[in-house]
Amino acid sequence: MKHTIAALVENKAGVLSRISGLFARRGFNIDSLAVGPTDDPQISRITIVVDGDDYIAEQVTKQLNKLIDVIKVRKLDEDMIMRRELVLIKIKLEEDQRGEVIDIAKIMNCEIVDITHTTLMIEFDNEPEKVDLLIDLLSKYKILEIARTGTIALQTGHNNVGA
């Protein structure tokens, strides 16, 4: 089962290495980890998606909480969150494929952000499952490169992970 965990951390050197080291050491399997600054430049928000049972999710939360540089940790309720992921995909176009690929891009509401005679770059942000679907749809073409950001998430409604 996948768990989404949000952590507010001190925005300083070494924090990410402490966190990734912790995961490696304790054998936690991380699906994705996304980090970026918040409105407070001293605080970064990390979103972690971890695969495992409830025991693993609890251990991840507790061990993260134990780190001095981690200000707050919250395991997010999967039914009450908005999850997003951004992906850039570059495709090599064979003859006559451009129309098909553009069709897929249009149906999925992607943006085409770069184009040459033989390549096409697509930008897409949506739920991680939709990103997976898009990649699946495009897999019959020659994908040259993919860059995914990893999932970020906020709780819906009035629930916040405030520092």
């Binding site: 025991y55 609890e58 251990q59 507790k62 061990q63 909480n65 134990k66």
Partner: peptide
């Protein structure tokens, strides 16, 4: 005192 030890 260490909540991470409880239930580990």
């Amino acid at each position: 005192i260490d909540p991470a030890e409880i239930g580990k």
